[in-house]
Design a protein around this nucleic acid. Structure first.
Lengths: 244, 244
DNA sequence: TTTATAAATTGGTATATACCAATTTCAAGG
DNA sequence: CCTTGAAATTGGTATATACCAATTTATAAA
C-alpha cells in the first residue's frame, strides 16, 4: 500500500519530525523566512522537506510550542515578529526583552459575573463557610489591546453585593471597592506554576493551546488583614514575564 | 481504501479527540482507573472508544499535558498517583496541595561545568566585557530524589576559578563561595515565565515534554551589591509551586 | 537459582488518503 | 465602489497501515 516505510535508511541524517523542526528552526533563524512573513503551506513544506504532511505538521507544532510560529487556521503559519527567541540551540535559554508593562496601556474587561456557592477551596481561602454564596467574576486584562491575563476573582457575595456592576461602570476594581469601605488592599501571597491553558483560556488570551500559561493563585487583604478576595488566573506566557 | 470517513454524522456526540479525552478524563475522575494503575494499551483503548489509534494517542497526549497521565514507552500509560487535579471541568483552576518544599530533602547535583566566552546577554548581566571567559555550570536540584529544577549558572571565570570542583567537594554553593570571600548573597531580582521544556530539560527533570516548565532568570549579588552570578533555569511545573 | 536470549507487548514515528472548517481570493452583480 | 457569493486555499481532524524502539515477559541455558 504505502511504499514500505524506509525509516532508518533515509538519506536525511537522523530523520523524523525533530530533524525537520530543527531544519525549519534554523532556516527561520538565518532569516530565510522573515519575521511576520507567512510560511509556505503545510502541503508545500511537506513536499519540500520530503516528508508526509502529518510529519510536517508535527514539526510545525513543535515550533509553535516554542513560540517561533503563529498558526492560523485557513490562513497559514507566520513567523512571529516579536521574536521571543527564548531558545538557543544548545541547552541555554535567553529571555525576551522586557516588554515594559509600565508604559503599556492596561485595561480590564469583565467577561462574566455570577453568584455561586463556595466550594471547599474558595471557602477556606476567603474564611467563609462552604456553600456560602460568593460572587465569582471572570476578567481579562489587556496591555495595548493584547490580552495578557485572564483571572477568576471570588469574593463574599454578601459584603460585595453589586460589585460587578460597579466595576463595569468605573472600570476599576480599586475604585469600586472604595464603595465597600476598602480604601486600599494588598496581595497577601501568590502561588505560581506553569500549565497548559484550557480551551477557554487560550481563546480569551488569543494564544495557541500549545503555549503554556503562567498560572497563579492568591488572596487580597485590606489594612486590617481581612481577606477581600481570592484570585485564580493565568498570564499568556508568550507576552508576559513576571518580575519578582 | 478507508471507509469514507463519516466525520460529523458520528453517533458519539461531538466526536473527535477532544471528546475522547473528555470521556477518558471523566472515567479517571470517577475512579474507573485507579491512581497509579496502568491504562489499557493504546490499541485496546482505540478499539474500546471506536476510534483510530492516532486519535486515541491525541486524546492521551491531552491528558498527559494536563498532568493526569504519565506515559512510558514500551511500558504503558499510568494514572498519576499524586493527582494534581489542577483542572476542574469548568473554566476554573484549583491548585495542588502545597508540596511542602520545606521539609523535603533538597540536594543538588552538578551536571556539567565549562569555561566559555560570555555572550552579550550574560556579559551585560554580569557586568563583564562580551567575550570574557565565564564559568558556566549546569546543576539539577532534587527534592527527595525527584528532580525539581535545572539551572544554568554563570559567573566570572577569573574571580571564581575552580568553583565547580569546590562545589562538588562541599556539595553547597554557599559554602564554596565562602572561599572566594562571599560570606552571603541575595537574589537581586527574578524574571519568571512559562515555556515548554527543551528535550535536555525534560530528560533531566524526568518529566514529559508535553508538560511546561516554570522558567526563571535572575542574578545573585553580595553585600556590596556586586553581581556574583546570573542564573537561567526552570522548575518542573508538575512538582513545583513557587510562592511569592 | 541465576543468567542469557528470544518473543511478545507497548508506545513512537511515518506514509497515504480523505474530508471538514475557517479564511482568503476573486469574479459577478448591484 | 461596494457587496455578495462561489471557488480556491489552508489548516484541522480522522482512518488504515507499517515498521521502529524501549520495555516487559517468557523461555532456555548455565
Amino acid at each position: 500500500m504505502e511504499e514500505k516505510n524506509r525509516q532508518g535508511e533515509g538519506a536525511k541524517a537522523a530523520g523524523g519530525w525533530a530533524a525537520v523542526a530543527a531544519e525549519l528552526r534554523s532556516a527561520i533563524g538565518e532569516g530565510k523566512h522573515a519575521p511576520g512573513s507567512r510560511l509556505p503551506s503545510e502541503r508545500a513544506l511537506s513536499e519540500q522537506f520530503g516528508v508526509s504532511r502529518v510529519t510536517m505538521r508535527r514539526a510545525i507544532a513543535e515550533l509553535e510550542g516554542e513560540g517561533l510560529l503563529r498558526v492560523a487556521r485557513g490562513s497559514g503559519a507566520y513567523v512571529r515578529c516579536d521574536m521571543p527567541v527564548r531558545f538557543q540551540l544548545g541547552d541555554k535559554v535567553r529571555f525576551s526583552k522586557n516588554l515594559t508593562a509600565a508604559d503599556a496601556n492596561l485595561t480590564r474587561k469583565l467577561v462574566s459575573a455570577r453568584d455561586v456557592p463556595a466550594n471547599a477551596d474558595v471557602a477556606a481561602r476567603l474564611n467563609l463557610q462552604p456553600g456560602e454564596t460568593v460572587l465569582e467574576m471572570c476578567a481579562v486584562a489587556y496591555a495595548d489591546a493584547l490580552p495578557v491575563s485572564v483571572v477568576m476573582r471570588s469574593c463574599s457575595a454578601q459584603r460585595f453585593r453589586g460589585l460587578a456592576e460597579k466595576f463595569v461602570a468605573m472600570s476599576s476594581f480599586t475604585a469600586a471597592l472604595k464603595d465597600y469601605g476598602v480604601t486600599d488592599y494588598w496581595r497577601r501571597s501568590t502561588d505560581i506554576t506553569a500549565r497548559m491553558p484550557t480551551e477557554a483560556e487560550a481563546r480569551l488570551l488569543q494564544q495557541s493551546r500549545l503555549m503554556p500559561v503562567l498560572a497563579y493563585a492568591g488572596e487580597d487583604i485590606d489594612a486590617e488583614g481581612t481577606i477581600i478576595s481570592c484570585q485564580i488566573g493565568c498570564f499568556a506566557s508568550e507576552r508576559v514575564v513576571v518580575t519578582v
